[in-house]
Nucleic acid binder design. Sequence first.
DNA 1: AATCAACCCAACCGCATTTTG
DNA 2: ACAAAATGCGGTTGGGTTGAT
Length: 288
Amino acid sequence: MGRTPCCDSKGIKKGPWAQDEDKLLLEYVQANGPGNWRMLPKLAGLNRCGKSCRLRWTNYLRPDIKRGPFAPEEHNSILQLHAIVGNKWSMIAAQLPGRTDNEIKNYWNTHMKKQLRQDAQQQQHAGGGEDAAHAQAQAASCPAARHMAQWDTARLEAEARLSLLSSTATTTVTSATDSSSSTALPPDHAAPDIFLRLWNSEVGESFRGSAQQGPAAAAAASVPAPPGGCGGDDSSAASTNDGADDYQAFLDQAVEEFALMHGRLGAFSVFTPADVLAEASCLFSPFE
DNA sequence: AATCAACCCAACCGCATTTTG
DNA sequence: ACAAAATGCGGTTGGGTTGAT
């Protein structure tokens, strides 16, 4: 006994949108604004369900949608954001003006997953050894371990940036590294660098402690092995559960920070200016 | 030229969350 | 406070396109 689906009416068209349908939808939304998707098809003269109309508008017809290939900055942003919030595509999309969650999701699934796999393989060849191969196979077969690998990348980049900023002794770092209040507003003149703030907070420190035994160990310690899944017959999983708590606490705080900051400031850039990123990439560029 | 496989992306589906009466 | 409706979100699928054989 659930709700009846919105699209179960007979005769409702599905599949690709025709040009005239796009035109009808576009004209209606431009005249009346988005919203009331339930009634919109009838009012606009469309033989579609409201859900389909909303999707078509948000993913394709919206005038502020940016089309074309993703820029390197966008690529890096997606990479870093995904390391923090995971598959929260709408959250990631909120930080990339003009990109839809669907587009980012597709981009991640088709381009970036593949690239991460290739990078991992390259590292395996460079590193060599059976242990590396084993860890790689584990990472490839276990989503949680993959996520940890992504997290490790973001962590390294944050460290590189921290090193950079501390060496240039900018005043923004002083406020950014003030861990006494993780929810304090950043100074108006500085971009809020959540990576740095989280990294220097207590949960960040706690997580660093658990991850210091290396990425593979951190992955094993942080993520309980699924039944019959990666991590094998890990009987020590229970004894290392602190890592999972730290990791979860870190992620939870990251999500809270995003939500809080986004609520206060609207759309904003999480990341430092492009020149700083460029410098950082000289120190450490994991995805090139 | 024909066939097949891989890739890409728009659209759908179902669940979760929020809003409304 | 509750139930139903509306909306949002993430996972998945299907069909078109492109490249290899």
